[in-house]
Structures are given as C-alpha cells and as structure tokens.
C-alpha cells in the first residue's frame, strides 16, 4: 500500500511540477505598429459664430495650406468682430484643404471625441469681456467636454485674441489641458464693440 501511495504521489507531483514549469515559462511576445503613411493635415480652422439674439453670423478662418514648411499661416481672415453683451453659439470646423475637395476632419474628431478636446483661452486684454463655455461632451464615463460647439459670451468692448488649442489625449483625457499632445494651436483676433 505504501508503495502504491508513493507511486501515486510521485505521478501527481510530476503533473504538478510540469504544470508549474510550463506556466512558469513566462513567454513574452511584442509587436509594434509604426505610423501610418498619408495622414491628413489640419490646415484650416473655421469658426462660425451665430448671435442668439438676431442670428447674425460671424465667420473666421485660420489657414496654413503649407503645413510642412515654415511659411507663416494666413491669419487675414482670423478675425471675430462681435457685439457687446451678446451670446454667440460657436461651432468649430477643422479642414484639410490640401485635398480637393477639402476634407472635413471635424467628423473624425467627433468620432474620436473620447480622447480629443478643444480648449479656448481668451487673452488678458479681453479679460472677463469674453467668456467661452463649451457645450458639447464626449461619451466617457463621466462625460468630459469636447469643444466642437461652445457659447461665446461678450460683455463690454475690448480687443484681444482667443487661443484655440486642440489636444490629442489618447487614454489620458481627464478634462484638463495638461495631458497629451497638441494637434492645433491657433489664435483668432477678437474685437468686441457696440
């Protein structure tokens, strides 16, 4: 009987040790995906603002049609002339105008809303005379701001710039500006008058 017990215990031990040995051989496999060729450019930021009081529409463009060289962007149309004490519903359109017809990147940003966010920073010259409140959000849990749509709220006359920044925050988006990289960083001139 003792001999039988010894044999059974030995075989069970062999199985156990084999399992541990195979499981313990912690194999590691690594694969890398490099950048995809032919990525689109973000050449154009279009801001469309509609005055909620009278539906007056203000449109401004920031353009850099040669994003791969050092030529400065075309900011001649990057100007927002707004009325005092008004609320404007704003929508941002992001375009790749190196393609014909121009490609609208905005939809792609909406699809990838969970790790993108647009931030608006009015300059100190504007002070509290321009407030920008983002009105849309993503589908994270809890939802975080996206920034494709917003309200531009003006008070007294002032002039300055609003800095519009699109952040790409893959798996690090938390509603703050810091994490991730910058996809777009542009300025629009803002003139608030009577």
């Amino acid at each position: 009987m003792k001999k039988h017990n010894f044999i059974i215990r030995s075989l069970a031990s062999i199985i156990l040790i084999s399992n541990l040995f195979i499981a313990g051989c912690k194999k590691e496999e690594q694969v890398v995906s490099p950048p995809l060729p032919g990525n689109e450019f973000l050449t154009t930021v279009k801001l469309v603002l509609v005055n909620t009081a009278n539906n007056d529409t203000v449109i401004a463009f920031w353009r850099d049609l040669t994003p791969e060289d050092s030529n400065p962007a075309d900011t001649s149309l990057a100007v927002l002339n707004l009325k005092e004490n008004s609320t404007y519903k704003a929508t941002v359109y992001l375009l790749d105008e190196t393609k014909t017809p121009a490609e609208d990147i905005t939809e792609e940003i909406k699809e990838r809303a969970n790790y993108h966010q647009l931030f608006y920073f009015p300059s100190s010259n504007l002070g509290a005379n321009l407030l920008v409140n983002v009105t849309d959000s993503d589908t994270n849990s809890p939802p975080l701001p996206l920034g494709i749509t917003s309200n531009f709220i003006t008070s007294s006359a002032a002039s300055g710039k609003v800095n519009v920044i699109l952040k790409h925050q893959p798996n690090v988006k938390n509603g703050t500006f810091a994490p991730g990289s910058t996809d777009i960083d542009v300025n629009f001139q803002v003139n608030i008058s009577n």
């Binding site: 195979i22 590691e28 690594q30 694969v31 890398v32 995906s33 950048p35 995809l36 893959p170």
Partner: peptide, 28 residues
C-alpha cells in the same frame, strides 16, 4: 497580435503602438 496593435493604433489615432503579451492561455 499585429492586428491587435494595428487596431489600437487606429482607434487611438496615435503614431505608434506596442502590444506586449506575457504568458499563454492555460486551461486546467
């Protein structure tokens, strides 16, 4: 695993992804 890595590359719209798997499936 390449398709897994490529999928994350596309889904997160990043320049590169690295997927590392350690160990096997073990069915006891």
């Amino acid at each position: 695993l390449q398709s897994l890595s490529d999928g994350y590359l596309d889904d997160f719209d990043v320049d590169s992804t690295t997927v590392t798997l350690s160990g096997d499936y073990i069915n006891m």
